[in-house]
Write a protein that binds this DNA or RNA. Structure first.
Lengths: 201, 201
DNA sequence: GTCTATAGAGGGATAGAC
DNA sequence: GTCTATCCCTCTATAGAC
């Protein structure tokens, strides 16, 4: 079914996946045409179906990797019983901002697709075990008695993710240059942990 | 859902616009079919083109009203020179959460469409005059010398908007019931202003 | 494995009767 | 103003040559 080539990253299959990442992320599933993807990959349209059978299948593969990027590496941090709450906040902030800086369009793309087609994700996302009942959440509950830990979680995630979501607005309105935005993001590595600790005190 | 008097709200044109709001918001521009909209409106497909000439035109009308809802009522609050910074924070929080509760899918829909087609919005959004240089931003700059007011603005907006954006994730993952989410949102009317004032101290 | 050509369905838009 | 029928282009997917 699949021929193993010398260089994985330049294989036909990988070219399609990379092109699909770009086109899907830019336009969304419905507006992305298989022709766009083939052109972006510099390859023939028929080959796309030869390798992936359908647009839908290719999308599922790309999206699975995106979800992996967004959620997977959080689990071990959230459930590390050897770190304090403050250390977790520092750690997550640093790692998440770096990851999002490398993939700035990921959050809005993933969230858009979940919104327009929730059924597709119903089985994929398992917040309950890894996040909602994590050591991290228990630490929050222990630290600040009156507070609902979910409130803190949503606020913290929002502090990290929202700037990337709102970026297109600043960009198209001309209110912000690319470099100014990058600097603003970088500054948040210090600001966000500081603020979140204020909230927890 | 909308049960107002005869004339305007039950006119054919208004039925299409209401149906378009629903279908566009649910599926996004590209995935929404004009046939879906006509069916949702309980009207004939040909009539859609008779009234709006094209799918694109109908979308522009609906989106203009959405942008109005999202941004317009902020301007007078942000530029009210008779209120303190704290009052503005309270005021915006209350009004914005109410508006978003009534239109929970609005933010993600609008942001998705801006992302997939930024050109369409380049002229529409004028952050500069009404927001970036507002009395609100000047008050922040005056209150907390070292801080970039934009950092505060993004964080504040994120605190208000992000829960609505992330909701589909909690919903599809089954981690949250509808009522639990509504309560969580309601609680934020108190929490968010409290937190934002901590950050400003 | 890679190509050209095309089948076949979907969907935006219009003609024309009433 | 509202309908039915239909045009016609676009897009996914496949057949079949090489």
């Amino acid at each position: 079914m699949k021929e193993v080539k010398a260089d994985i990253n330049s294989s036909t299959e990988e070219k399609f996946k990379e092109a699909a990442r770009i086109v899907f992320t830019k336009k969304g599933y419905a507006a992305a045409k298989t022709r766009d993807i083939a052109e972006e990959a510099g390859l023939n349209l028929a080959l796309l179906n030869y390798y992936f059978r359908s647009k839908e299948k290719l999308f599922e593969i790309v999206m699975a990797e995106n979800l992996q990027k967004l959620f997977a590496f959080l689990a071990p941090i959230l459930n590390d019983t050897s770190t304090t709450l403050d250390q977790k906040v520092d750690n997550i902030t640093e790692k998440y901002i770096d990851m999002l800086s490398a993939n700035p369009n990921l959050p809005l793309f993933v969230l858009s697709e979940i919104r327009t087609n929730p059924e597709r994700f119903a089985k994929t996302i398992q917040l309950d075990s890894y996040v909602m009942k994590s050591h991290f959440m228990q630490q929050i509950a222990g630290k600040k008695k009156g507070m609902n830990p979910v409130q803190f979680l949503i606020s913290f995630m929002g502090m990290l993710i929202f700037p990337f979501i709102i970026r297109p607005v600043f960009q198209t309105s001309g209110a912000f240059k690319e470099e100014a935005f990058a600097q603003l993001i970088e500054d948040r590595k210090k600001l966000v942990p500081h603020w979140m600790k204020l909230i927890l005190e």
